[in-house]
Amino acid sequence: MAAAKTFRVLPGFNITLGFTLAYLSLIVLIPLSAVFLKTTELGLDQFWNVVSAPRVVATYKLSFGLSLLAAAINTVFGLMLAWALVRYSFPGKRLVDALVDLPFALPTAVAGIALTALYAKNGWIGQYLDPLGIQVAFKPLGILVALVFIGLPFVVRTVQPILEDLDTELEEAATSLGARRWQIFRHVILPILLPALLTGFALAFARAVGEYGSVIFIAGNIPMVSEITPLMIITKLEQYDYAGATAIATVMLMLSFTLLLVINGLQAWTSKRTGRDR
């Protein structure tokens, strides 16, 4: 590997990297730097006041808390779904497999409207939950449902390839050594899946924190109760407070970036542990 640094057989390094950096700067870095520069219009004190206002802090708690919860739910059920897709044959399996990607492809606004139609008090699902005293739409629970929806493909799609690559010998060996099924899962399979599960979890989380389109229809948007952080940015904008909006945006951006660094670190770790070429 290190040798390639000094001696490159393949052509095109300079031009492709050059183009990559130029395009990256043009489309992503320069626009995003505008957010940081706009924020500097606020002094440090003002910046702190904006991003630590109680109402804003309440949205962090809600956005991050629910995103964590949604990612956790997706990790459990995503693993089950991936397991079922890889290990069992059942009718309609191809359909299920194909539809897992639906949240990637379905516009978020459509998802929001459809979910609201389902979970409102008079909706298909909501009408059965309402007599039980469970309200989903317009409550934090509704936000959770939307976040689970948009994050669903991530865990399934990160875990699935690893499960498919799993050698049957591993489990056969463990069985012959007298291990029970649950023990095998716990001590043999789960450790192999763990990095992929963590990656899927982190991705679902990162996606959920910034989500706006699907959540806004189903959230109640009550201050301190069911407001998400992206809505705070919009609210600031509506008051012509650009600097305030960018201050919150800056907090979210830094968080996104940190998260992604962690995810990519996880992946490097994954490939080292499993010996898979990433």
Binding site: P31, L32, A206, G210, Y212, T229, L237, L253, S256, F257
Partner: peptide, 20 residues
């Protein structure tokens, strides 16, 4: 990581940057 960034940036911010 930089290439990944737009993926986890809130769409609201993505629109905002072009307004700025």
């Amino acid at each position: 990581t930089l290439i990944d960034l737009p993926f986890s940036v809130s769409p609201v911010i993505a629109g905002l940057v072009f307004v700025l």
